[in-house]
Every structure is written in C-alpha cells, then in structure tokens.
Simulated assay, not measured.
Amino acid sequence: MSRSPNALPYWTLILPPLAWLVLGVSGFADGHPLVLAIVALALAGAVFAAVHHAEVVAHRIGEPFGTLVLAIAVTIIEVALIVSVMLSAGAEKSGLARDTVFAAVMIVCNGIVGTCLLVGGLRHGEQDFRVSGANTALTVLAALAILTLVMPNYLSAAPGPVLSTSQLAFAGVTSLALYGVFVFIQTVRHRDYFLSGEAPQDESVHAEVPGTRTTFTSAIALVVCLVAVVLLAKRLSPAVERAVEAAGAPEAVVGIVIAALVLLPEGVAATRAAHANRLQTSLNLALGSALASIGLTIPTVAAVFVWNDMPLALGIGGMETVLLSLTLLVSTLTLATGRTTILQGAVHLVLFAAYLFLSVTH
C-alpha cells in the first residue's frame, strides 16, 4: 500500500488500462502462443493491482468490512463468468459450477490457508487468531459444502448427481440465507469475533487512513481490475481446455484452473497479510472467499438453470467427497486452538498437492 494516503503508486493506475488494452488487442490474434503469454502477464499485473486497491479500500473502511470487499467482488464476477460459459455451452458444461466451486473450496482451505500458515509460521513462529470467528466461518462452510456438493448424490428425486427443481431451489435459497446470516454476524452482531487482538507488524496498518478521493479511485480501479482478471481468464480458458484435452486429463481440471485464476487476488492478499503477522485478516479473507464462492454461486446458478429448465450437476465423486471430508476435519483441528505453526501449513499444502495430483490422475 502507498505510504501516502492521497497518492497511489503509478503502476497501480497504469496496469488496469494496460490489461484492458491487451484484452482488446488479443482478440485479433486469439490462440497465438505469444499472445497467450502476453495475456498471462497482463492477468498477473491486473491481479497485483487489484490486491493493492483492495487493501486501500479495506484500510479506509476497516475490518472486518475490508475483507468482504475483495471476496464478494471477485465472487460476483466469478459467478458471471461461470454462468456465461455454462449457458453458451449448454448441457455439455452442466458440471462446471460444481467443479469450480469444489476447486475454490479446496484451493482456499488447503492451498491459500496452507500457504498463509507456512509463510506466517516461517517468519513469526507461532501466530494467533480468534477461534470464535474462524470456527463460525468453518461451521457455515461445512454445512454449505456438504448440502450442495455431497447431498445430491444420495437423493432419489432425480437421477445422477443432480437435484430436482424443488430441491435445487431449496439449495439455492438456503445457501444464500446461510451466507447472509454469516455476513450479518461478521459485520454487525458479532463483529468482534473477526477482529485481531494482536498488534500487527505491518506499518501500512498504522499509516494514515486514505482520503476520500484516493479511496474512491481505488474502488473504481478495483472493479476495473477484477473485471479484467475474469475476462483475461476467460480468454485463456480455451487454451487451457485444449491443453487439458491434449494431456488426457479429466474435464474437472478446467474448473480448477478457472477457480485458481479467479482466486489469485485473494490468495496474494491473504499471503501478504500472514507475512505481516495479520493471520486474522488472512483467515477472514480465505474463509470468506470460500463461503462467498458457495453462498453466492450456487443460488445464482440454481436460479438461472431453474429459469431455463436446464440440468445442473452438483454432486461430487467419491474421491472428491473423501478429500472434502478430510479437508473439513483437518481445518477443524487447525482452527481449534487459536494458534498455528508451520506444521499446520505443511499439512494443508500436502492435502492440496494430493487434490491436484488425484484430480489429474484418477
């Protein structure tokens, strides 16, 4: 974050329009290896610019509202991307929402959380956080994940890993309701659960609060960056699909890549917070992203598919169910004491590596 509250670094203002320029130009030479490499670089630049602007906005509005900015903004755009791809491809992509949401949960709970715990533990030894807030988020996450990703496999109203129209509507309404209650708890009723009691070793936290003009500029730039991230990711997705098909990997790998690209801003922001000894902020970002991914994606996709009378596959397979159950169990143990070390980070990263390996080879 810039040291001056009224001055943003030039690179954070140059990269967003540059990303859009690359997006526009790349349409004239779509599929060329050099163009794809430039698109990937523009995507990375937009991600880092988005993280910076999100931190400016978060510093102005304070915690825990700040951690909601990036999570909800990215998830809304992620939903738009998923819905647009699924509607254009029809029944062929009926499982894309499931694959992407499951990938988001695994990336967040194992990849991002594991990286944060490892990075924070290597620099600070032990790190503290509020058990009440973390457990609240994990409780809602477990309920949403099991009800939407596992339960469809054990119902008989519709064949296969799908829900009937009434069940799909119920899943969408309950997911949105649970997420809404969580946001109310996080921001109003029990806001203190998600506030760190430790003094962070990060000078940007103690810097002067950004002015109104700077905050407004960052808010606009954040939206511009996030839309560019998703559109650039969509531009890369055909190449990713071709590579996945050429490698003979399962189609679910496409969902993993989409989720990873969209979650890059949250991952970078959460890791930076852990490195600055702000583990509470890291967990708020990570778990909040996973909750938003399910709580907003499932209701929106459910509404679209019920309206268009299209099939929507939600139930995950046996291997994925085992990995999800193990992830929730390990996460419960990790967040049980309020203190973490590099060991917990290593365990989550091993689970993440197992998820990636098994997703490609099973």
Rank of each mutant, 00 (worst) to 15 (best):
A171R: 00
A171H: 00
A171T: 13
A171K: 00
G172S: 11
G172W: 00
V173L: 14
V173W: 02
V173Y: 02
V173Q: 03
T174K: 02
T174C: 07
L176K: 12
L176A: 15
L176E: 12
L176C: 10
L176G: 13
L176P: 04
A177Y: 04
A177V: 13
L178I: 10
L178P: 04
L178G: 13
L178N: 10
L178S: 12
L178D: 07
L178A: 15
L178R: 09
Y179V: 06
Y179T: 08
G180H: 07
V181Y: 06
V181A: 15
F182M: 08
F182P: 01
F182V: 02
F182K: 00
V183I: 13
V183Y: 03
F184C: 09
F184V: 11
I185W: 07
I185R: 07
I185Y: 06
I185Q: 14
I185P: 04
I185M: 10
Q186V: 06
Q186E: 12
Q186N: 10
T187W: 02
V188N: 11
V188Y: 08
R189N: 09
H190L: 05
H190M: 10
R191Y: 05
R191I: 07
R191D: 12
D192Y: 10
D192C: 03
Y193H: 14
Y193F: 15
F194R: 02
L195P: 03
L195F: 04
L195C: 08
S196R: 00
S196C: 05
S196K: 00
G197D: 11
G197P: 02
G197H: 03
G197W: 00
G197Y: 00
G197V: 02
G197F: 01
A199G: 05
A199R: 13
A199K: 11
P200A: 15
P200V: 15
P200G: 06
P200Y: 05
D202W: 06
D202E: 13
D202L: 06
D202S: 15
E203W: 05
E203N: 10
E203K: 14
E203D: 12
E203I: 04
E203G: 14
S204M: 08
S204Q: 13
S204Y: 09
S204W: 07
S204K: 04
V205D: 11
H206E: 06
H206L: 05
A207L: 07
A207E: 10
A207G: 09
A207M: 06
E208M: 09
E208G: 12
E208R: 14
V209Q: 13
V209P: 03
V209M: 13
V209C: 13
P210I: 09
P210V: 10
P210A: 08
P210M: 07
G211C: 09
T212F: 11
R213I: 13
T214M: 05
T214A: 15
T214W: 01
T214Q: 03
T214K: 00
T215G: 04
T215P: 06
T215R: 00
T215F: 03
T215N: 04
F216Y: 11
F216N: 05
F216P: 01
F216A: 14
F216H: 05
T217L: 12
T217E: 08
T217K: 01
T217N: 07
T217I: 10
S218L: 00
S218C: 03
S218N: 03
S218E: 01
A219V: 08
A219K: 01
A219Y: 02
A219P: 10
I220H: 02
A221R: 00
A221G: 11
A221Q: 01
L222E: 01
V223Y: 05
V223C: 08
V223F: 08
